[in-house]
Design a protein around this nucleic acid. Structure first.
Lengths: 196, 196
DNA sequence: GTCTATATCCGGATAGAC
DNA sequence: GTCTATCCGGATATAGAC
């Protein structure tokens, strides 16, 4: 009805909203069904067990990130790329105060299936790998300044963005922007002048 | 039996372990009762509703942090204090890969009671306030070097530690240490020499 | 303060009709 | 592919005995 041609995909879309908003243990097939105007048994037809749905959610995130990486390759230089990475998260924040996939996966890590955990681990590694390359290239070109190794700063940035997104839920969105602004400030190329 | 003199406190202790390990929506009164060798009805006697228990958990964390602040005041200088802050989180990591209270509260924020949310907000502000003072004083004494405002760097550090703790669940403890090492590296006092 | 017993509800899941 | 009907188990919670 109403032109539904791909229920399976719509289920995934609704589930994703609920997932990033309330967590994996915070939504049920009933929630999904109600939003789509179908019965929960219909959801089970497409995803027999909830963990099937869970794995599908994470796997789709991985594919989406992989496509994003390809698109983002066309951006020129360190800062536009870092901004693009941050923008992904900014969208979550603005979309009803959601958190990023890894943020929710990590928090509920000990309650999800092995397969979801494996996917979560892969997604985390893929994101960290991208950031590492970003910092390695950025340093080579002199666009960014940092001490230590690229994978170390990449870990800092990844953790900061994930953490900032969550903390903004408790204390407000301003907190996210404050955090991101200062994160970028610490990474700015060092000017020849001495700072305070 | 076995010398239990304060069941209410023991309940809180067990609940805290479960909470930081599996999340608020990831444990039940049955789990608590089984671990203590009592029935879930007995747990309800001490904490009638689960949200009473939830609020008690967060409030105790706030009191604990307040006491920690007093104790830590005796530490001398910026770095020992920052290390003490990190050590709190290191303990969570080593204790069966738990996360910090705010990390789990933020992730499940949209599923908890108003009162838990209020407490969570207060705890977050208290921790951020402490970090802000730390950076303000540290800068004045020249122990630490950063651009921007103390509350901004405090936000970065708070978010980084929280995020790093979570990410370590997915990819291993080494990730936490890598992150912390590089976080501290970026904050080191700037030497007169030029760096790469 | 803890127990047994019970009530209620909900989430996950399946069978079989349409 | 979606429905109705149903089952099971678990989680929250209360009443009343001990």
């Amino acid at each position: 009805m109403a032109g539904r041609t791909d229920t399976k995909r719509e289920i995934l879309d609704v589930a994703e909203q609920l997932w990033l908003h309330r967590g994996y243990n915070g939504f049920s097939y009933q929630h999904i069904a109600k939003q789509l105007g179908i019965k929960s048994a219909a959801v089970h037809y497409h995803y027999p067990a909830k963990q099937d749905l869970g794995v599908a959610l994470v796997e789709r995130m991985r594919r989406r990130f992989a496509r994003w990486v390809v698109r983002t390759a066309e951006l020129d230089g360190f800062w536009p790329k870092l901004d693009a990475y941050i923008a992904i998260h900014q969208v979550y924040l603005d979309d009803d105060s959601k958190v990023c996939p890894t943020g929710i996966l990590d928090a509920e890590f000990h309650t999800i299936s092995d397969e979801m955990r494996r996917s979560a681990r892969e997604l985390t590694r893929e994101m960290h790998g991208w950031l590492t390359t970003l910092f390695r290239d950025g340093r080579e070109k002199g666009d960014v300044c940092f001490r230590g190794e690229p994978d170390g700063v990449a870990a800092v940035v990844g953790a900061t963005v994930q953490g900032a997104l969550q903390i903004a839920r408790a204390v407000g969105r301003g907190s996210f922007h404050l955090t991101i602004d200062h994160l970028k400030l610490q990474l700015r190329r060092r000017e020849p002048t001495v700072d305070a």
